[in-house]
Nucleic acid binder design. Structure first.
Lengths: 184, 184
DNA sequence: CCTGGAATAGACCAATCGGTCTATTCTCAT
DNA sequence: ATGAGAATAGACCGATTGGTCTATTCCAGG
């Protein structure tokens, strides 16, 4: 494997949390699972994340959100049309879906939405989502849309992708994601 | 309250499960919460649902799915156009969203998707979703669409609603759902 | 080399988890 | 009235949960 650089413990924890929460949701993952996957002892967890599971969940969601932002940026960077960018994005996400074993959820939803019924968590989830939409919005404006149209387009794409991912998950097939561009 | 007819224990359990799972997800709800809300002792749970929590979850998801089917039927029954039906549906769901305290998820996703990583569960969730889509599909055909167009329209509406609900939840506002018709 | 804080390591804890089991009560056909 | 099965009731169980605490190891600055 790519274990050349044995990631520092903190990163290993975040990575493991990010993966496990995506698959099983916040409450579906126990500390024992987390520590086993990260190959870290409990002491390290509470050293790096004094508030334990919930702190780690926030960090994991942030990491996952950054990954998404990077994907958004990449797909739209090469695009000359909004439609082009959207198409690339759909393809890229369909790929990710297939690679994930067709069962992971939106990482933010899995870790923050279904987490402890803490208002901070909910607000943070909303904040991350708005970040995604803002990223797409900026590209939309750059590609010629006026402010309002760009906002509508960005939100629309978000909605379509979230919904399609859910149906894809139910069907265990990325077809819905792949055919999404036709519906724009 | 409306405690005129003290619902039989089994129904009380299903109702409580349906509500709690929607709010906290399968793993987020303990048997103690469930039994407290249903005002039922543990013995009754395992009498009516020999396999315990997972059996109850299936029943709860089925109940929730039936409620959705009824809503779909109602909204499209009075409609003379597919667009009319879709509009009514969006309004109706926005209402439900507001009434739920703006935080419940899709009941099937919450109870079956995030449940035990059982393949039966996943398949059943998919089956329920296809039922929703089929219902809309039939109405779409009745309202003049050909088979393929109807299928596409039904799936599209499903995707839009699931995605919009998610964004609405993040923003704690039903606006996205209410404005959805404009985007069709 | 010594030292002090960062990091690791895991034993330990109360609480809660889902589930089992026995005892009791309710209900209704005989 | 009675016997039988359905339903209720909750004590009890081992396993696991998230979290605390102490002991040890690691490593850089003196």
């Amino acid at each position: 494997m790519s274990d050349k650089k044995p990631l520092p413990t903190k990163d290993r924890l975040i990575r493991a949390a990010s993966e496990l929460f995506r698959k099983h949701g916040y409450h579906g993952v126990g500390l024992s699972d987390l520590l086993a996957k990260a190959e870290a002892p409990k002491g390290s967890l509470y050293h790096h994340f004094p508030n334990g599971k919930s702190d780690l969940a926030r960090a994991a969601a942030d990491r996952a959100s950054d990954q998404i932002l990077r994907i958004l940026a990449n797909c739209f960077a090469e695009a000359t049309t909004f439609k082009d960018g959207a198409n690339a994005l759909c393809d890229r996400l369909a790929e990710a879906f297939d690679q994930s074993g067709m069962w992971e959820t939106c990482p933010v939803a899995a870790t923050l939405f279904e987490g402890p019924d803490n208002d901070e968590f909910r607000a943070h989830a909303a904040h991350l989502y708005e970040g995604w939409i803002a990223e797409v919005h900026d590209h939309a404006e750059r590609l010629g849309m006026d402010h309002d149209t760009a906002q509508a387009a960005a939100e629309h794409l978000f909605v379509l992708l979230q919904g399609s991912w859910m149906l894809a998950r139910a069907r265990r097939s990325s077809d819905v994601l792949r055919e999404l561009p036709e519906r724009l």
